Simulated assay, not measured.
Amino acid sequence: MTSQLKAAIETIEQVRWFAGLDPVVIERLAEQCQPCNLRPGEALSRRGAPQTQLSFVRSGSLELSIHGRDGRRHVTRYLVPGEVYGLIPVIDGGGAVHDARAHEATELLQLPREALLSEMQTQPALALRLLQLLCGRSRQLYELFAFQQLLSLQARLAHLLVIVANIEDHLHTATQRDVEILMTQSELSDMLGVSRQSLNAELKKLEQQALIRIAHARIVVTDPHGLARHAGEVI
């Protein structure tokens, strides 16, 4: 096994929804992946444009956004290593759902649509995992809609941090460790649709509770379990 193939297998196995699949299936997928390197700010896809590759984030992060009718860009989320991009258009054959660009220098593995669909047709376990992934993301979307309309800024912020930091994945691990969110306060405030001053005040409240630490150009979640509990308590 070449080092390139081994690295591709490890990248796919980082995705929680792929972990535990038949190693032979993962190896077949890895064999058909091609690397893709993006510079900071470089576009990967445009909303509505054809998308025929499923992208695994190996390093760096992808910024997903949409544009409103007024032309303003709204960042919806950031994808980090262990996540995939493009599942909906790859499965249904439609255009890209988001504009996607590299938030920083980013390395991807790209799997052709035909390879994924071929494996899904013969591997029910893979198809089920991808359905679970789609359902999980749909739940997050519904929750975000509810948060925007019904919850306080403190609650919206706590839930947003839980989502962008993939706290759900970290709750499945036995060891407690810090989780870095490589986003500025300006980027977080844009996602919430509030001023940076209002956001900073709420972040400081979370920092005082030892749930996060505010750092330069990033937020460090120092207590993932505690932040998840707090998000549930402030609903």
Rank of each mutant, 00 (worst) to 15 (best):
Q110M: 12
Q110L: 08
Q110R: 13
Q110S: 08
L111I: 02
P112D: 07
P112G: 06
P112T: 08
R113C: 06
E114R: 12
E114T: 15
E114D: 14
A115P: 02
L116E: 01
L116G: 03
L117S: 04
L117A: 05
E119K: 02
E119R: 05
M120C: 10
Q121G: 14
Q121L: 11
Q121M: 10
T122R: 15
Q123R: 11
P124M: 02
P124Y: 03
P124Q: 02
A125P: 06
L126R: 01
A127H: 05
R129F: 03
R129C: 08
L130S: 02
L131R: 12
L133Q: 08
L133W: 09
L134S: 09
L134G: 06
L134T: 07
R137A: 07
S138C: 11
S138P: 00
R139L: 14
R139N: 09
L141G: 05
L141V: 09
Y142D: 13
Y142G: 10
L144M: 15
A146P: 04
A146N: 10
A146L: 14
F147T: 05
Q148I: 12
A155M: 06
R156T: 01
R156A: 01
L157H: 01
L157Y: 00
H159A: 08
H159V: 03
H159I: 07
H159Q: 10
H159Y: 07
L160Y: 03
